[in-house]
Design a protein around this nucleic acid. Structure first.
Length: 283
DNA sequence: AGCTACTCCTGGTAGC
DNA sequence: TGCTACCAGGAGTAGC
């Protein structure tokens, strides 16, 4: 699923094709894709506007339209963004089309219809409450150690919580926890300062490596805006590797469910917390 | 505060 | 072959 590295890749690749372009027409094939705003109101808000910047915040892509506001996109599981020549066919999953003044068109494509491309007047307000960027200056070892101690939550659900830290999803949480030797059900207040420092380093490392490889593609859904798959899936240590040997110690990777999410761990490298919680037993 | 369940969706796959 | 049942999950929300 598109997480921080995939969203960052999309933002980087569509940015040069959008910035400076003016929207000349808008059409919406699935109303819910633009949120609760009506199609006519959406169209009048964006047509005539010029893209001033394209940035990523958490898993959102924020496309500033200057004083008017911004388009805020979220790919959820199967969303895609592409900028192509006007006659390019986006296929049957096309949801929103924005024609641009250079003869190209921006396409918002989504198989499962969970993705959103919303127009907002105030993107800062829309994105308020999201936690710090894990690749930003605020996300230090000290900060993480302190924040973990302030809470008493299982590590995995906490790291998936976008108000705690931005941009992590199921894949990169599983990968980070394995690389740190921490169990997903370990309570946050039992993580030592040294473990927190390691976790902070591994979260940054796995995200940076994944961005370098343009994200992860393991099904038909995630593709870069150029139509290519990412290649970080070849570096996975646990995600999607249930039953296969741990690359560190050879123990078969276990699959469990934590917080309704498929969870992958090495039983040897990530020992279960001593005060074992009952949920998430492998099946 | 933290947890669990539920909702939204559909392509892919397993089982018969 | 063709059918059915189930799975994947990010974020928002409700309820305990």
């Amino acid at each position: 699923m598109p997480e921080l590295p995939e969203v960052e890749t999309v933002a980087r690749l569509i940015r040069p094709r959008l910035v400076g372009r003016r929207i000349t027409a808008a059409s919406v094939a699935w109303k819910r894709s633009i949120g609760s705003q009506g199609v006519a109101s959406f169209a009048s808000a964006v047509v005539g506007a010029r893209f001033e910047s394209v940035e990523r915040r958490a898993k959102y892509i924020v496309m500033s339209l200057g004083g008017r506001g911004a388009l805020v996109g979220h790919l959820r599981m199967t969303g895609r963004m592409q900028v192509e020549a006007a006659d390019w066919d986006p296929g049957k999953f096309a949801k929103v089309r924005l024609d641009l003044d250079d003869g190209s068109a921006f396409h918002f494509i989504d198989v499962r219809k969970f993705a959103r491309l919303e127009f907002v007047r105030d993107p800062a307000q829309r994105l308020a409450g999201i936690g710090p960027e894990p690749l930003g200056p605020e996300f230090t070892a000290d900060w993480l150690a302190r924040q973990l101690r302030l809470r008493r939550r299982a590590l995995k659900p906490l790291l998936l919580d976008q108000t705690f830290v931005a941009g992590l999803g199921n894949i990169y949480v599983d990968e980070s926890l394995h690389r740190s030797g921490l169990h997903p059900l370990c309570s946050s207040d039992r993580v030592s300062a040294a473990q927190a420092a390691l976790l902070q380093r591994e979260i940054r490392a796995v995200l940076r490596e994944a961005i370098e490889r343009e994200g992860s593609s393991f099904d038909v859904f995630y593709r870069t805006p150029e139509g290519n798959p990412g290649s970080f899936q070849h570096q996975f240590r646990v995600y999607g590797r249930a039953g296969e040997p741990c690359r560190t110690c050879g123990t078969p990777i276990a699959r469990s469910v934590v917080g309704q999410r498929g969870t992958h761990t090495c039983p040897t490298c990530q020992p279960r917390p001593r005060r074992a919680r009952r949920k998430g037993a492998s099946r």
